[in-house]
């Protein structure tokens, strides 16, 4: 299995982005970090495919402009 979809896949990108920002409205940085952590866990579970998740983790870390882990 594997192969992360790195092409556009959201049919409403602006709407999604707005909703994501709204999720964090009124939260402290600490609260936001916790919410983000939960979101990562929820989405990772939904994806399920470990190989896809590994590709996603690698991509996220790469775009943070730091060494690969």
């Amino acid at each position: 299995m594997g192969t992360l979809n790195t092409f556009p896949n959201l049919n409403d990108p602006d709407g999604f982005y707005e909703e994501l920002l709204r999720l964090h409205e009124g939260l402290s940085e600490e609260e936001s970090t916790l919410v983000n952590a939960k979101l990562v866990l929820i989405l990772a579970n939904h994806i399920g495919d470990r190989a896809v998740i590994t590709e996603a983790l690698t991509l996220a870390r790469k775009s943070a402009n730091v060494d690969q882990f």
Binding site: L34, V40, N45
Partner: peptide, 23 residues
């Protein structure tokens, strides 16, 4: 700090949601 945040995220989610319990 981040591993503490993930730990607490797992524990809080586990209360409400089955999926987090194996974590």
């Amino acid at each position: 700090k981040m591993s503490g945040i993930f730990r607490n995220a797992v524990l809080e989610l586990a209360e409400q949601s089955e999926f987090a319990r194996p974590l």
